[in-house]
Amino acid sequence: MNDMRIVERLVSTNEIKIAARDVNVHYGSSHALKGVDVDILNGHVTAFIGPSGCGKSTFLRCLNRMNDTIPSAKVTGSILLDDEDIYDPKVDPVRLRAKVGMVFQKPNPFPKSIYDNVAYGPKIHGLTRSRAELDEVVETSLKKAALWNEVKDRLHAPGTGLSGGQQQRLCIARAVATSPEVLLMDEPCSALDPIATAQVEELIDELRTQFAVVIVTHSMQQAARVSQKTAFFHMGNLVEFGETGQIFTNPHDPRTESYISGKIG
């Protein structure tokens, strides 16, 4: 069943998964995001780059309504996931977040066992009917996150006892376990060493065969390495959005050029 869907996805590789139109975010009186239009494609890794405070994380958090938890945040505009407005009053953010998974900047495994970390999502969403099925989901998720071989002998050891890179891959496995359709990653490698970063980047490239992946990063090399599409944000504006190769070699906007060449930031 899952495998069939993957095949479908590979076929419809240029299909728009998320369409954001004229998205504005206000935190109280400050205007954090100004009229952003972005299309997230299936089977692509989309990278958001830009200096600190430019609104890229804010926009990412709009995509699964994590901004709802910030009382002063106000989001306007429309974000369509498969042509359904995710800010429609009828939409329960809990259902949305099951479809749009998220991996955070700092590895944040639950202080539970590795198994329970991965099994938590499927459990609360009732995705599995039996223990055997759950075991299978945990195994495939850990395999997708390239962690299975390292932890298969100690699934019931605490997840917090893993190394930083392993913890981050555990968080990816946890996000993957609910079989989301989009995976949002907020600077997933900023707390990792170069080796762990390379592993996670490789993983991101593999994951895009199954999900639309959106990644926020401070490292332009990383954006260049892993993404097919790049969006450059500056002072709350989406300055430029296009093919990664074009953004890095032939940016249209002078601000993009000065940022990637290190003149602003």
Binding site: N64, M66, T69, V94, R95, L96, R97, A98, G101, M102, V103, F104, K106, N108, P109, F110, P111, Y120, G121, I124, H125, C171, R174, A175, A177, T178
Partner: peptide, 12 residues
């Protein structure tokens, strides 16, 4: 971060 983690995978 623990609350974010739980909310991020769709816990109420």
């Amino acid at each position: 971060s623990i609350r974010d983690a739980a909310l991020g995978i769709g816990a109420s």
